[in-house]
Design a protein around this nucleic acid. Structure first.
Lengths: 368, 368
DNA sequence: CCTCCTCGTGTAATCGATTCCACGAGGAGG
DNA sequence: CCTCCTCGTGGAATCGATTACACGAGGAGG
């Protein structure tokens, strides 16, 4: 493969001049420029990014380490991250941690060795020494979706509290009182926060969240199934199961079906994370939708800011409730809405208006 | 960040010795080795992959350019590719072409500039000059899923013909005679092959595939919706719609719902590509399942073989039919089976036995 | 005791770019 | 006409590794 030297020879100039042309440095004569460009064309020269990176100490690349590619939420996140990165002149190397800390470390190590300019991470756990060291050593880093407390790294995340409150209002309005949740791993912030948001919202209605109604999951479908089976084995099973992510909701649906029960007639189901498929499940699933695309874009902007030496702030965007049929009561959404939902990029993501859910005044109820 | 020079100084040896230790070259004394290792530890040294790649002219990385990350089929493919690559000591850089040739070119250019060791491509189109040049110039390349005729590049793909024949048998057995297909882009092999397989299978039953019953799609949900609407507007609409990929099936489902029609009572639906969500849609969708994981692994093995100088052969693995309820007749699969289906890695992928579908002897029927 | 090999090590070239510095030509200003 | 600046250019150092080659020490064999 032709190098800059070959181009220089072909054009009859020095390598310095070729390099200047390639980086359009101002002080190059028009004549030299055209000669170089011609030579580049003739030889089919392509700049060697490896050599360039070695010299300039920047790769114009960053790493994105996510917890599970098979989770459509992360897939969409990855997609929006790549898009925004491309728009800003960066490439992205993905690492799939598969919810396994050691795999996460493998990818971080690998990315660090490749001298990526920055790291976007959705941590699987509480933070390995490797990751913490990298952060402290000054590797530009931004957490997205999940984060690790006690580290000085900007966080880009969705705040689901209002939407979860809307969800509980919706459930309460439908007459449900025994509400259960399948939590994510306690090592993750989203694993903990979602339970807390749920518990707080429930408390506003004077209800409680007994330990029996907290299933321990790991954000994978299988754990959702197991947790749901345990719920159903309870002497007094819950009326509603709220899964803290979409895959566990899928597992829950499986478990419910396996018992020959129906949603929502026998038990209601809701999920955190909305995905296009939820429109088409039987029944369509009520979910808390994160502004995934915007999250990814904001994370990239923050990371690029850090790479360029600025100090970005953390970003929190609101999630919103999307009511469908899985909690009872026919969905109020007209059929055209189903069409809109299915499209990849939901254009109605701005969400100033939190939700169409019926909302009794909770403050009054929680007092007595 | 510490370099090999710093390590050499710390250990009191030359950079050559450090390098030897790091690459465990035999001729290094035990004493020097321990000193170097200690220095590496003290300084927290990490080898600079950029510099190493420049010198050795290999990156231990390859690129995977796929057509659409949001398509669960490709997501799973990407996942299995990364896994196998990691097992063989390679990293993978993904490029999402979003079914757009110019984006595909962007990624190929980018990957080539980064001097990846090889390229795994599922081409969006008939092949850009850039890609063809790269192939001819000797860049190790392997096509996966889709391919381009006339280029000497190994192909790893699934053969869906038997499964499609099984599908048609299943449909015929259920009494359906007017069968329509939503095709993928004619520029892709899968876009063409699936139509041909369908047409051939239909012919065995003495049926034909009129032009009106061939919808033109682009493997995206929206196109599936449009094609289905056109089918439904026909004076004599088809009894079955077969979508050539899972996203178009989703779009078709949308379009059918929007008219207030039901699957399978009013119209049957089947898809190419099976995905976990198809178990949970309303109704569960009958699909042709590719051995996605095995495809990804085989592709990686072939590419690594090429990189290492061997000349791998193309690989074709059989797809198989998975019957569910979307074509009529209650699914014969007992409910435990639904559980198995939902798991990420279907362990029953070997598929010696093609399908449980009823299969009249088609040869006799096609003769008269 | 001399010669030859082997072994461990260091010096320096190299990969393909970027960029500092020096240099010569030519124009402007005195 | 001389001086000084600007502009375009080239030479060479540099980034952090790998590796060919040289070299000295020490052991084996004659």
């Amino acid at each position: 493969m032709a190098s800059i030297k070959d181009v220089a020879a072909e054009a009859g100039v020095s390598v310095a001049t070729v390099s200047r042309v390639l980086n359009d440095h101002p002080s190059v004569s028009a004549e030299a420029r055209t000669r170089v460009l011609a030579a580049v064309d003739v030889l089919g020269y392509r700049r060697n990014a490896v050599a360039r990176s070695l010299r300039t100490d920047q790769t114009h690349t960053f790493g994105l380490v996510i917890s599970d590619v098979l989770n459509p939420y992360f897939t969409e996140l990855a997609r929006s991250v790549e898009e925004e990165a491309r728009a800003l002149g960066y490439s992205v190397i993905f690492g799939n941690a598969d919810e396994r800390p050691e795999l996460q470390d493998h990818h971080i190590r690998n990315l660090l060795d490749r001298r990526i300019d920055g790291l976007l991470v959705s941590p699987t756990d509480g933070g390995s020494p490797l990751m913490l060291d990298a952060a402290r050593a000054g590797t530009p880093m931004v957490f997205v979706d999940r984060w690790i407390p006690g580290v000085d790294v900007p966080v880009v995340q969705a705040d689901g509290r209002a939407a979860v409150r809307d969800l509980v209002a919706h459930l309460y309005g439908l007459g449900h009182r025994r509400l259960a949740i399948i939590a994510g791993p306690a090592a993750t912030t989203t694993g903990r926060e979602r339970v807390e948001a749920f518990r707080a919202a429930i408390a506003e209605y004077g209800l409680t969240l007994p330990d029996d109604y907290i299933g321990q999951g790991d954000f994978q479908a299988e754990s959702g199934r197991r947790a749901t089976e345990r719920f159903l084995d309870l002497p007094e099973p819950p009326e509603v199961v709220f899964a803290a992510d979409n895959l566990m909701a899928l597992g829950a649906l499986d478990a419910i079906r396996a018992r020959g029960m129906r949603v929502p007639e026998d038990i209601a189901l809701a999920a955190f994370d909305d995905i296009p498929w939820f429109v088409h499940t039987d029944p369509p699933i009520t979910a808390v939708a994160q502004p995934t695309g915007e999250l990814g874009r904001a994370a990239v902007r923050a990371l690029v800011a850090r790479i360029e030496g600025r100090t970005p702030k953390s970003v929190t965007l609101p999630a919103r409730l999307v009511v469908r049929r899985s909690c009872g009561e026919p969905s109020p959404e007209p059929s055209p809405e189903a069409s809109t939902e299915a499209s990849t990029e939901s254009s109605t993501e701005s969400s100033t208006e939190p939700s169409p859910a019926p909302r009794p005044s909770p403050a009054q109820r929680s007092k007595p």
